[in-house]
């Protein structure tokens, strides 16, 4: 169900780079989500195309992360339908095609006894399937992923001994090791310094353009990502906009969201 409403909101997109608009990798059709009686997302419809580099923005508590988790199959929508690579979520089983870089701080024990290589190898787990042991090929793919993010010299270091920015590269390598088609990143640049942020966006550009990966990035740092992404999706319970960064900066309704976020950034940083 391609809603009329969505067509009204969404201005014609200018297509750049390697986005293939004939191939929808994700279709979100009129999706709502509630925690108990508290509706977090309402009537969201959105297509993500192959090769896109999508920024998901919105004020704090607007449901960005919830939407991301719905796309990853971590949350089931209360209403509506999600298709990944054309398959309905309920029947979808190619989870290893979706890479996930979670918000670092929430999920990670810095004292966990694992080397960088052991962490990257975890990314192979879903691809292997149950009852299969890791082999030489998995090791090679883990090493290759480490080279992609420029961290091969840290292979034997403990994950907890690295800096925040380095750890994030390792988690990106972990996602890459599964050889995914899409990578989802949740607030990847929160709490890292400017230089690390620049390195991060350079790496994202490389993954998107050279490795042809579709990227979905949740961020509240609107100013920064506008110069990086191809399309921006603004969420504030409903889908507020889906357009190019140029259009976003021109649109007045977006400025409201941007304004809220600038305020939000000011409070927390």
């Amino acid at each position: 169900m391609e809603t009329k409403e969505e067509n009204e909101i969404k201005p014609p997109l200018k297509f750049s780079n390697g986005v293939d608009h004939t191939k929808k990798v994700i279709e979100i059709i009129d999706v709502s989500f509630s925690y108990g009686n508290d509706e977090v997302l309402s009537g969201i419809s959105l297509d993500v195309h192959k090769g896109d580099y999508l920024g998901l923005v919105g004020p704090n508590g607007a449901g960005k992360t919830t939407l991301l988790k719905i796309m990853l199959g971590l949350l089931r929508p209360t209403k509506g339908e999600v298709k990944i690579f054309g398959t309905e979520l309920k029947e979808f089983d190619r989870w290893a095609d979706l890479g996930y870089v979670p918000q670092k701080a929430t999920n990670f024990d810095p004292n966990f006894p694992a080397t960088v290589k052991e962490v990257v190898l975890m990314g192979r787990t879903g691809r292997k399937g149950l009852l299969r042991q890791m082999n030489k090929k998995d090791e090679e793919l883990a090493e290759k992923a480490l080279r992609e993010v420029g961290m091969e010299q840290y292979e034997h270091r403990l994950i907890g001994d690295l800096s925040g920015g380095q750890q994030q590269r390792i988690f990106i390598a972990r996602a890459l090791a599964a050889e995914p088609q899409i990578i989802f990143l949740d607030e990847p640049t929160s709490g890292v310094d400017m230089k690390t942020q620049d390195d991060f966006y350079a790496l994202m550009k490389k993954l998107n353009q050279e490795l042809d990966l579709t990227l979905v990035l949740v961020s509240h740092d609107i100013e920064k990502i506008m110069g990086e992404i191809m399309h921006v999706v603004c969420v504030d319970k409903t889908l507020v906009c889906h357009e190019t960064p140029e259009e976003f900066l021109k649109d007045s309704h977006s400025r409201v969201i941007a304004g809220e976020n600038v305020k939000f950034i000011g409070h927390h940083h």
């Binding site: 199959g73 971590l74 979706l98 996930y100 975890m122 787990t125 042991q133 972990r174 599964a178």
Partner: peptide, 24 residues
């Protein structure tokens, strides 16, 4: 334990990412 070793390590380290990767 040997059969589920890689899954157990992944879940112990990052349960949510493991679940997103299709680990039961």
């Amino acid at each position: 334990l040997a059969f589920f070793y890689k899954e157990l390590i992944y879940i112990s380290f990052d349960e949510e990412a493991a679940r997103a990767g299709g680990i039961p």
